[in-house]
Design a protein around this nucleic acid. Structure first.
Length: 509
RNA sequence: GCCCCCAUCGUCUAGCGGCCUAGGACACUGGCCUUUCACGCCGGCGACACGGGUUCGAAUCCCGUUGGGGGUACCA
């Protein structure tokens, strides 16, 4: 519950009384892991400090934004259990929380910035800027040169008479700009390295560069935790923030913390195209939200020196931005999967049953809604697969044979190989042993005792080979959940039918 | 070009001057357990990018080099 964790030794200001963080995505495309990791870190920090999480939508680009994407963002947050205290859907004192609905607020701020002289009209085109650089013997690649800073009214009028509409640029301070990054420490951008930049389009619409800091200021954000890709735009934001403080819109500038990149294979930034960047693909494959949260948290942060499996509660208990690692993290599907597997094992059995249902339904193995009979079977089968699964999506493959009619069971090619010297004899013996077992004594223990006694001891066949043919007959697979347990679940009639079916098939060939 | 960030096993990381002959996890790998496959358990392989300093002492601090990455828009 301590809020002092937020401050770093070099932080010159007092730690704000309450931590207020925000997650402010643009609703474009499908949520990707880097974005969600950012949401998670903001959330974890808010919860750790007892602060507030604000969820704002930056939909200022009508051409790219979509309602579908917005719905997916909500879906992603809810799936992972990342909740928010103020923002879209829940409201709050600083609404509205969609930038597309905040136009008047921005116009008001723009008017104040103009009045105070922080932004000025700029008529220069990109070509004119480059041309001036060339004429002066400078690199034409250099950015905006500040030419319009000192335009007289007459000059402006002349441009207007040509039919030109100006953009508005922020007057950058002509001095080194330093801030203390929560993750990286003190960072200084040299004076002159950041040109005056455009904050309002020629058509009067504000740009992200204006709107983002303005909303952070109005929503009283204290800690801006965002991706490293925004690090180099921080001097611009800080400069604007200072202007906002000057005109009374902002109380003070927030603290910044830039979270490391999330990379794909090799050294390339994870793009939205890469399948491993799509959050929902993980869900489809059967990642548990617990597993996903755990793995995501490991992208730039660690729970402790010798433990990397932890719960959401443990994350909240320990998370601190100051402990975030500055180097880029690569997503490793295998590690993510291994972590998910651990969470599957940690789940109470009854809970796992419920989590499994949608995956079996999607595969068409059980009905929707699931019948009582199916549910009973699944509940009995779940303990057999809990330590065998890495992803919930593996369940249909592992348990399918239990939910398939005997006549529809397909024995895979793979399961017909390496069945030993005389699989027909083994199956014959198994059939007679099973027949001898009554309905009531058709249990895992009785089955194992009878079959082991007959095939392993009597016939002298090694266990490895002894049960192979039975496994193939029962499950149709070379690899399956434990055999005797599976037979018990299937029942005597079904087990016999399957043993006989494979026996006939092998005898015929 | 200019500006900024980053640099420990293949990967994610612990390490914040002596506890480091560098710890953990995933992956890989040898074995045990075992009705298959897993789980579990025991073991192995495997890293401080390089060069200078500072210091009694450096993976840890400083500088440089190299190598990655990002920014440099009337996108966000």
């Amino acid at each position: 519950m301590s809020t002092t964790a937020a401050s770093t030794p070099s932080d010159p200001r007092d730690t704000p009384a309450e931590v207020r963080v925000r997650f402010c995505p643009s609703p474009t495309g499908t949520p990707h892991v880097g974005l969600v990791r950012t949401a998670l870190f903001n959330w974890a920090y808010a919860r750790h400090t007892g602060g507030k999480m604000i969820f704002r939508i930056e939909d200022t680009d009508a051409a790219r934004d979509s309602e579908e994407s917005y719905q997916q963002l909500l879906d992603a947050m809810r799936w992972l259990g990342i909740d928010w205290d103020e923002g879209v859907e829940v409201g709050g004192p600083h609404g509205p929380y969609r930038q597309s609905q905040r136009g008047e607020i921005y116009q008001d701020v723009i008017a104040k910035l103009i009045e105070a002289g922080h932004i000025y009209e700029s008529f220069s085109t990109a070509e004119e800027i480059a041309e001036r650089h060339r004429a002066a013997g400078r690199d034409p690649q250099l950015g905006y040169d500040g030419y319009d800073r000192t335009l007289t009214d007459a000059q402006k009028q002349a441009f207007r008479d040509e039919g030109r509409e100006p953009t508005w640029r922020l007057r950058m301070p002509d001095e080194d700009l330093t801030f203390t990054d929560l993750v990286r420490g003190e960072i200084t951008f040299k004076a002159g390295s950041t040109p005056d930049y455009v904050v309002v389009r020629a058509n009067g619409q504000p740009l992200y560069t204006l709107v983002n800091p303005v909303d952070d200021a109005l929503m009283e954000i204290t800690h801006v935790l965002r991706g490293e890709d925004l690090l180099s735009s921080t001097p611009r934001q800080v400069a604007l923030y200072r202007a906002l403080v000057d005109i009374g819109v902002a109380k003070q500038e927030p603290l910044f913390g830039h979270l490391p990149y999330v990379m794909g294979e090799g050294n390339k930034k994870l793009s939205k195209r890469d399948p491993e960047s799509n959050l929902f693909l993980y869900r489809e494959q059967g990642f548990l939200p617990e597993g996903m949260v755990n793995y995501l948290a490991l992208l730039g942060w660690g729970y402790s020196a010798d433990q990397d499996i932890f719960s959401r509660e443990q994350l909240v208990e320990r998370f601190d931005v100051a402990d975030v690692n500055p180097n880029p993290a690569r997503v490793d599907i295998k590690k993510a999967t291994a972590i998910n597997a651990d969470h599957i094992r940690l789940l109470p059995e009854a809970e796992l049953v419920e989590r499994l249902v949608p995956y079996l339904q999607a595969a068409g193995l059980v009905s929707d809604p699931i019948t009582e009979e199916q549910h009973r079977l699944l509940a009995a089968a779940t303990p057999l697969v809990q330590t065998r699964m890495n992803l919930l999506g593996e369940a249909p493959d592992m348990l399918g044979f239990l939910f398939t009619a005997d006549a529809d069971l397909v024995v895979q090619e793979d399961a017909l190989k390496k069945l030993g010297e005389d699989p027909v004899a083994v199956l014959d013996r198994a059939i007679s042993e099973v027949e001898a077992l009554g309905e009531v004594s058709f249990t895992t223990e009785a089955l194992e005792a009878a079959l082991r006694g007959a095939i392993v001891e009597d016939m002298g066949i090694k266990p490895r080979l002894a049960f192979g043919p039975l496994r193939s007959a029962i499950s149709g697979r070379r690899i399956s959940p434990p055999l005797f347990e599976s037979m018990e679940l299937l029942g005597r009639d079904s087990s016999l039918a399957r043993l006989r079916a494979l026996r006939e098939r092998l005898a015929a060939s």
